[in-house]
């Protein structure tokens, strides 16, 4: 049983438009059986934060191609992408590089 984790989720480059225009979200992920990783976080975001057109943010079990993910200001490709296990007080940033956000 993993303890609840508190992380900062941030959106930029126009991705925030799908989240009511709010860029920074301080969220607490409830404790659950398996540890929190980015894969689970995306599902949680889709359920709890995403306000409209989920297909413009999430495709399959990952983010839509063209959206960059930064974990603590570093490239998620360096940290195992979807398999990265969230630590308390991590900051996760999603930047859209798509035209028009």
């Amino acid at each position: 049983m993993a303890a609840p984790v508190s992380v900062q989720v941030e959106f930029g480059g126009g991705a925030e438009l799908l989240f009511d225009g709010v860029k920074k979200h301080q969220v607490t992920l409830p404790g659950q059986e398996e540890p929190w990783d980015i894969r689970n976080l995306l599902i949680w975001i889709k359920k709890n934060l995403l306000k409209e057109r989920p297909e413009l943010f999430i495709q399959g079990d990952s983010v839509r191609p063209g959206i960059l993910v930064l974990i603590n200001d570093a490239d998620w490709e360096l940290q195992g992408e979807l398999d990265y296990q969230l630590q308390d007080q991590d900051s996760i940033l999603f930047i859209s590089t798509l035209h028009g956000g």
Binding site: G12, G13, G14, E16, L17, L18, E52, R53, E55, L56, H99, G100, G101
Partner: peptide
């Protein structure tokens, strides 16, 4: 500065 483009939020 982010400004919406002509195709913002348009379907794929």
């Amino acid at each position: 500065v982010f400004t919406p483009a002509i195709d913002t939020k348009a379907p794929e």
